[in-house]
Design a binder for these strands. Sequence first.
DNA 1: GCCATGTTTTCCACTGGACGGAAGCCGTGG
DNA 2: CCACGGCTTCCGTCCAGTGGAAAACATGGC
Lengths: 247, 247
Amino acid sequence: MAGNSRQAGASVTSRALAILSAFDEQHRAMSLSDIAARADLPLATTHRLLGELFRWGALDRLPSGDYVIGRKIWDIGHLAPAETGLRQVAEPFLHDLYGATLATVHLAVRDGAEVIYLDRLRGNQSVPVVSKVGGRLPLYTTGVGKVLLAYAPSEVQDTVLAGLTRITPYTITQPGSLRRQLRQVLDKGYATTREEMTLGACSIAVPIHQRDRVVASLGLVVPTLKGSEQRLYGALRVAAQSIGRRL
Amino acid sequence: MAGNSRQAGASVTSRALAILSAFDEQHRAMSLSDIAARADLPLATTHRLLGELFRWGALDRLPSGDYVIGRKIWDIGHLAPAETGLRQVAEPFLHDLYGATLATVHLAVRDGAEVIYLDRLRGNQSVPVVSKVGGRLPLYTTGVGKVLLAYAPSEVQDTVLAGLTRITPYTITQPGSLRRQLRQVLDKGYATTREEMTLGACSIAVPIHQRDRVVASLGLVVPTLKGSEQRLYGALRVAAQSIGRRL
DNA sequence: GCCATGTTTTCCACTGGACGGAAGCCGTGG
DNA sequence: CCACGGCTTCCGTCCAGTGGAAAACATGGC
């Protein structure tokens, strides 16, 4: 009854993992029933699994009783070598970049059809940005995103090109025009955006190469690129090369 | 035989979690048999669970075949509110502090009898430090640690005092002398260390209050405190108050 | 090349722990 | 006071996880 009630290959472990997957940026705190609904699991089962995860430290509870991701996950996550290794190496160069430009500095990698921000340096009086460390944004509205997209396999590009949605009046929504920009990124060696994600924020970004593969992108967010594009590009290129050499 | 072979209340989920727990700073990459040994699970079972965790993205594999923590854990970990909330709020103030002092800046919380570093700003030419974001250190050899220990429940203090081990010639190993220092921390409002963790590195740290509870600590690492102690304390206090007010 | 040694992967019959419907509990508010 | 929605506990059924064993695979010594 009630249709296909449960996923086919649902192993025990995968249920616990399904619960963790139920959390995302829009759902940082959820009640038992929310989680059960989002993970598509029966209440009683969810309840028991939540108990186990909580006891272990994977989840915490707010005074309200809602569940949130716990410290232990944050903690163990920092053992991930790809993320922390790159960050570790890049850190001092990000500082230098910030010192030299006073712009918001971003270090990001691609995950599927999204950017994930590994690190961000933001000054006190920098332009407001929506990025967060650990957060995700579309590939086609940010400087670092465009770089990563330009070097991504064509399946990924196709997926992204098929789903362009307007965020600001300046967001690129024409597949042809985005495709042209991506070609330019490969030619010129850097990408730019002009208020395509946030009004009042422009950005410029370059790839970070490990051997001959592009593994990450380094970007700056500034109020305007007028006149400073080449200077910022120069600073970015030096930093990206230094980071790449050290990987 | 060979003693008590398996934990008593070992639920399925807890085995997957035991595998994740097998990873730590000294064991970032492990083979199947290493993991099975550390998690105290049979090889075949471990193998299957590793497969599930890998397929989901909780674990990655190196070219060598060794398992490491995967991006997904890092990713989900950043949804933990305690960690990221505090970081988010503190970030601009850490920058200011760095700008004003050019010292390495630390933001840390206590977990049991250890410090966990939530954030670190390190200049290019700062004193070398052993801290890492997401890393753990003892409570009694670091500035932020002493602050957090001074405000910790007495059980925690007793545990720590019972296990003082020398790291540098200047590490405090006398329980009495540490206890005296902790009292001073409460009196003066800040803690200092002088080469107790790393030779050539001194530190000063203050508590961050949320309402009337101490939730974190903010610290600076410098080559020497000579003459600058009061100036650094002033800067720290202002920053810590601003952060606390915003929580 | 060949065998000895250590590690990873696959297999499968058995069984004990997960499953989840249902009933009880608790807080809220009409 | 009772009705309602969400949380927690209970417990008999049964199937998915278990793990010993053996097969594949990788090393490396001679």
